[in-house]
């Protein structure tokens, strides 16, 4: 007897829940062979606004976690991705990657999460400082998370690009609203399911699917986003920088038109963590 096929509805992960777009819109997604795969939610600027609200709610609690605990949770996310690695590899293959390349991308994504998990309780020692001053004071420079950071993932590699941009942002206590690859959004949907089971509090990472041309202007101007980390072309980069100037947010752009080696060790660095930190310097009198 033949079974009826049970197909999955792809849903973005926002505020710890799997949502549909508030607009009800979807767009059809085909796999590499051109066969229909699923209808993917076409998120709107209102979905982006709602995601920012969710991130704002989750932020203070996430930032108050100990660095050690944030590292544990990032590592736990790596465990989840490792455990469902075959499923993720199969997905990447279905959307056009060669099997060996897909397996490399998934492995690199797991390793990247572990890499930043390791930095969680160490970056402060590298980036913070006790400054020399000419008076009987301690002068400390310590880091603080910025708040909500907008991430725009590159079209490819759909998984590794997203992971590489999100991990260094959340490790320090920021929260993220991310736009998945427009060409290949499904790996991000799958990653959302892993985020949901990784002990990461709901709302710390919010993943949207949809069209860049609709969402980039809102990423640029939304005043509650404190920084942007985007892998985009020059046109989108300009829109982002102009909007960011109005609301005084920090922008970190990876030029998506240039070939980038996301797999290499050069694609991971503590400076990616530093780019989304505020530095606070305080004076404290030296006690008798």
């Amino acid at each position: 007897m033949s079974r009826l096929p049970v197909t999955k509805t792809p849903k973005p992960y926002v505020g710890g829940a799997f949502i549909r777009s508030e607009s009800g819109r979807t767009y059809p997604l085909a796999d590499a062979a051109g066969a229909f795969f699923a209808h993917v939610p076409q998120c709107t600027r209102k979905d982006l606004r709602n995601a920012v609200e969710a991130a704002a709610k989750a932020g203070p609690g996430w930032a108050k976690r100990t660095a050690y605990n944030r590292g544990q949770i990032l590592y736990r996310l790596a465990e989840m991705l490792e455990a469902r690695g075959d499923e993720m590899t199969g997905t990447l293959v279905r959307f056009g990657a060669a099997r060996a390349a897909a397996a490399r991308e998934v492995a690199a994504s797991v390793d990247r999460l572990v890499y930043y998990a390791g930095w969680a309780d160490k970056y402060e020692q590298v980036l913070g400082n006790v400054n020399p001053v000419a008076s009987p004071h301690f002068n400390f420079t310590v880091t603080e998370p910025m708040g909500i950071v907008g991430v725009i993932a590159p079209d490819a590699p759909a998984l590794l690009g997203l992971v590489s941009l999100v991990a260094p942002v959340i490790v320090s206590g920021n929260t993220v609203v991310a736009l998945a690859s427009e060409a290949t959004p499904y790996p991000a949907v799958l990653l959302g399911e892993m985020l949901a089971t990784s002990d990461l509090p709901g709302g710390v990472v919010n993943l949207l699917t949809g069209f860049r041309r609709e969402l980039v202007p809102t990423f640029a101007t939304h005043a509650h986003l404190r920084a942007l980390s985007a892998a985009v072309g020059p046109e989108d980069a300009k829109t982002l920088r102009l909007g960011a100037a109005d609301s005084i947010k920090r922008v970190r752009i990876v030029d998506a038109t240039k070939p980038a080696d996301w797999l290499s060790a050069r694609a991971e660095s503590v400076y990616a963590v530093r780019d989304f930190l505020e530095f606070k310097t305080t004076w404290h009198p030296i006690g008798a």
Binding site: R45, V52, G59, T221, H222, A223, H224, G243, D246, S247
Partner: peptide, 17 residues
């Protein structure tokens, strides 16, 4: 303004988020 605003632009919610 056309841009979504942050809550801390108004006279409440002084938290960094």
């Amino acid at each position: 303004s056309g841009a979504y605003q942050a809550p801390y632009y108004f006279s409440e919610a002084a938290e960094s988020y």
